[in-house]
Structures are given as structure tokens and as C-alpha cells.
Nucleic acid binder design. Sequence first.
DNA 1: CCGCATCAGTTAACCGCTTCAGTGAACCGG
DNA 2: CCGGTTCACTGAAGCGGTTAACTGATGCGG
Lengths: 335, 335
Amino acid sequence: MSDKRKRATIREVAQATGLSPAAVSYALRGIQTSEETQERVRAAADELGYEAHPIARALASGRTAQVGLLCGSLEDYWQQSLAVGIGRALLARDRYALIVDAGGEPERELALARRLRDQRVDGLIVQPLDPSAALWTELAASIPVVSIGDALHGGQAQGEVVFDNRRGVTLALEHLRDLGHERLTVFTPTGASTPDRPADVHVNAEAERLGLRVDVVVVPQSHAAAAEVAMRVLAGPGRPSAVFCFADSIAYGVYAATRELGLAVPGDVAVCGYDNHPMSSLLTPPLTTVDWDIDGIVHSAVRLIVDVIDGKPRKRRVVREPSLRVRASTGVPGG
Amino acid sequence: MSDKRKRATIREVAQATGLSPAAVSYALRGIQTSEETQERVRAAADELGYEAHPIARALASGRTAQVGLLCGSLEDYWQQSLAVGIGRALLARDRYALIVDAGGEPERELALARRLRDQRVDGLIVQPLDPSAALWTELAASIPVVSIGDALHGGQAQGEVVFDNRRGVTLALEHLRDLGHERLTVFTPTGASTPDRPADVHVNAEAERLGLRVDVVVVPQSHAAAAEVAMRVLAGPGRPSAVFCFADSIAYGVYAATRELGLAVPGDVAVCGYDNHPMSSLLTPPLTTVDWDIDGIVHSAVRLIVDVIDGKPRKRRVVREPSLRVRASTGVPGG
DNA sequence: CCGCATCAGTTAACCGCTTCAGTGAACCGG
DNA sequence: CCGGTTCACTGAAGCGGTTAACTGATGCGG
């Protein structure tokens, strides 16, 4: 019953308090009115169960309290966690996330970016598939944009959260070196389209610094495909004593290959992953991997976009550091 | 530049065509105007790059083209997939999903349901933690509501997608019987609060029908906790030749227990799960499990809510059937 | 040729809030 | 006691659409 009847409007609150609608509007936002009036208005408001109509407010004020979240591919566990976290964090700040998924297709990503802008979101958080697209410039000129991962080319984004992948590589390689490994293979995912991980080049430099001999092998991201390649590498001559996989999913493929070949992990070959997928701690043996602090990333991104929207600009660029989760897959070789 | 300048309004299109704004509004929606006029208007509209302002439209028409999606707990992989799918499906129908997460807390769930309604979503899809809450009645009276999983008590929802868990149990038990198992243990998750799986009772009936001896053991949903209980069960006397876990996560615990005890799967004990978590196919051995067709569920839910919103009511209740994914964890015992 | 639908548009009133410009009163230094 | 601020609030014009009610043609059966 009571929910069927229309909700109270600002006019009714005005009437109830003997003020003008404008005064009520101001009072409820705590501006341009005396403390006492604000009190009275607030009282009347929740007496009547009044709450500003978000649509009307959006139309009049030009702000929707909605932030678009454009994900490159929500198939990815990693991006899902990010999306969930961002949704939650925005909600805590009285905003809603409009989450959309490009499904890995760059054109779709751009189309969706446009759609979000046309929906009048107040800002856009994007984990770009194609950071070099021209649209980003246009977009960033019309609404606040914060990137996660790859920075948008041209640097027009109002904020960016970047990952220190070089540091991740260093952590993994140092760990393996400390365990006494000297020869290792690095499996890195295909897609030169991911400058997300420019660290690939860093691998060689870092290996040299640490006195390691590394072979870099490019493999498809899927574990099945990775397994095939890993089979060849591990069955061939000069088998490495350790492998570093630039994605946990690749490590799963390596695990499969070792089982097939009857090799023990870490006895015959140590394995180190990258991303800390939650599944990785459940494998046999649990996978040592490079971990990103998702909450921190979420927090940074949300803070950036909200601050820009609210007009209080802060840091434009935040760099997040990874840490190493050491588990059983990188024991002492032969141990 | 061109994006900085304000977008065209309906009035400008009206001016350009020599029509009234109303006529343009009608024409663009293909009603109350001649074919020829519609054509002309359309031409002018995309000449000017006009697109209706969604906020203004929402205010005037009372429909936001947004659907609330209230998830009980997005920690859960299963619900994440559902959310991703629903978001995508709604997008394909030119609607946006407002995804929010109750984080497993029933009070939070209700608070969020209210918030979504206050945001003026056109409808609500909910996977209820507490289907018996009084709020649902009130809510369903004011906006279209579709439930997934547990039906809302009182049956006031305009649509419901339910899972045939009885069928799932039957599939699993028949499979194990066909493999020659006669004694088995069923691990079922705690939370009598999940009439989501009233099938628990069905287990006994079905076991009897199939001539199976079953022990039902209630365990916590987490695999770590499940592992402990499984240890006791599998180490004790009269070890079952097969176990059926009413959640894949429990099966992971069982796997851990078998490793600890040096038991082979399926050689010493066959394991069957429930839910088909994507990780389950990656385990050693891959887990036989009951699979739900997520796409089908997504499709049903979205279709239901959209049809109700659009005023063309169809089926109110859709029952989805599971299927069995047979993998290596349920081989012939001793094989 | 009349009366009545039907069609294609028009007019204007909203939808419910924000905000800009303005107004009267109180305050304040000189 | 006066000109100028500041304060608290009012009035009204939007924001950009939709929609109910109305108007003039046109068509049509009788």
C-alpha cells in the first residue's frame, strides 16, 4: 500500500516546513541555510520519508552518481575481482558502478566506452585493451577517465593506476636465484598487444644482473595450449631446473606437462607463477606466485576517479607494487 | 572540441525538421507519425548526432532502462559468472545492470534492495540470501522482481528461476550406482538457511530407490574445513567407496584429505561434486560434477525481467535442469 | 453531403530537482 | 546614521525529454 503511493517530493517537504523548495534543496545538502533550518528540514524530510529523486537530481545537476567500469575481459578472474571490489568501493561512497565487459574485443571496448559516456556516467574507469585508440583522447576530454593497468597513450587520462611489473619480475627471478637455480625458462603469454607487461624485456636485463641463464618462450594464455608447449620444453634436452610463468594459467599448463612426463614439482622442476589466482593455492603443490594487492588497486582507482569527479584533484598517477607469495612449488631443487 | 560542445537536443532536431519536439519524440520511437516523417527525422537526428538524453527520458517516462542485480555474495565464483552473464545479456537488450553485492549479509541485502529501488531501477533480479524477508513483498509490489535460486516466500515475485536440485542429486547418485558403488557418504554444506538445496532430503529417498547405503554428513562450505571432516570419515572404519559432495569446494577438501591419507581417487574412493566450478576440470584427477547451464539461467532471468518490464508477461516460473559432467574422479573402483 | 473515425501533428503541462539572480534584514566599521 | 557586506531564503527558469489533450485534414459509409 504505502509503497504504491507516490513518494514525497521536495515540494511537499517545502510545504511542510513553510520554506521554498530551493531552501529545502539547500538545507538537505547543508549549504546556504542556518543550522536550525537544516535541522527542521531534515526532521520534516524523514517524517515524510523524503529522499531526493536521483533521476531528477541528475537531470538538474548534471551528475548521475554513476561511474562506468569498462573491463577488457570479464572472463578473466583477475578483472572480475577488480570489478567486484570497485563496485563495492563505489557503493560505499554512494555511487553506483555501471559495469560493462568488452569480452576481449577492442572495437567493442570503444563502442561501450561511447555508450557509457552517452549514459552520462560521471566518470569512467577503464582497463584498456587498446590503450592507443584515438577515442580515449576524445573521451578524456569530455569526462574524467582513470585507467588501470596500461596507461592511455597520450596521457590525457585524469588518473592512472599502473602496475610495477618490473618489480614483479625481479621478485620472481631473485627468489629462484636464491633457491640456487641457474638455468630457467620463462613462459610469457602471447599478445604483443599487452604492453601491460612490458616487463618482458626487463626479464633479460634482470636475468643478466642476477647471473641467470633464461630462455623466453611465448605461449598462448590458455593452460591447455601452454601445456603442449611446456611438454616440448620439459621433455627436450637441457631441461631447465625452474620455470617462471608470466601468468598462473600458464603454470597450470606446466603442471599438466610435468604430470604427463612424470616430473616432480619442485623436485625436478620448480614453478613460479604470476597473478596469484585463488586456485593457485589449491594446486598440488601450491603455486609460488607474484601477488597483486587487489584491494589497494581498487582503492586507488576509486579514489582517483571520485576525487576528479568531486573536483579535488590529487595524485594523477599511482604505482602499485606486487609481492611474492612463496609456496611449495619452488622448493629447493632436488629436495 | 566537438565533444566539448553540448550535444544536440530534441528541440534542435525539431527545428531542423520543422516539426515540434513532440513529433520528433514520436517519430524516433516509430509511433504516431508517417513513415516519411520518421525517415526525415531519423536523417536529421543522425545528421546532428542527436541521441535522446537518457536521464531526461528517464525523468519524463519513469523508466530508467536499468535493472538492479542483487547478489547474495559475489565472493562466490558461481554468482560472479551469473552476474557477468546477466550484465552482458541486459546490455544486449539496451539496458544496464546495476550490480550490487550483499557480501553474504542478509541485512545488507535488504538495505541494498531498498537502495536499488530508490535509484529507480526498472526491475530487480535477486538471488536472495533470505527469501523469507518481509521486504520482498513490499518490493515486489512496487517494482518487478525476479528471483534466481530460492523463490521468494509468498510467491509475489513476478518471475522466478529455480534449480531442479532433486534432479541433480538423482544424476549423481545414479552415476555412482552405475559404477557399482553401494556405500557412500554425502557431504552437504552447513546452512540450513539454504532451502536452495532442499534436495538434501531427496538424497535419502533417492538412495533408497537406488538401493544405496548413504551417510549424510554436514560440513562447512570451505574446502579447508571440509578437509578436516573428510579426514575423519575416510580414515575411520567402513570407509565409503565413493563420496558425493554437494558443492565442488567440499570436494576440494576431500581431495586434500585423500592426499593426506595416501588414498587414490578414484581407485580407493570415487568423488563426485556439485556445481562444476571451472577449477574442477583442472584438478588431478578432474572432478566429476553436476553442471548448471549458466547461460540458460542468465537467459531465463533476463527474459523474465525484461518481459515483465515491457508489460508482456510470459511464463512466471522457469525450472532449470542440471546435467552431469563425467570426469576421471569417478572411475570404476579399484580401476 | 453529413457525421464520425482515423491519422499526423501541435501545444503545453509536466517529471522533480538544482541553481542563478535577486531581496530584505541584520550586521559592521567609521 | 550610512553605504556596503554577509546571511538566509525566495522566485523562476531551466535540465531535456514524454504524454495527454486537442486540432485540422482526410476518408468513408450511408
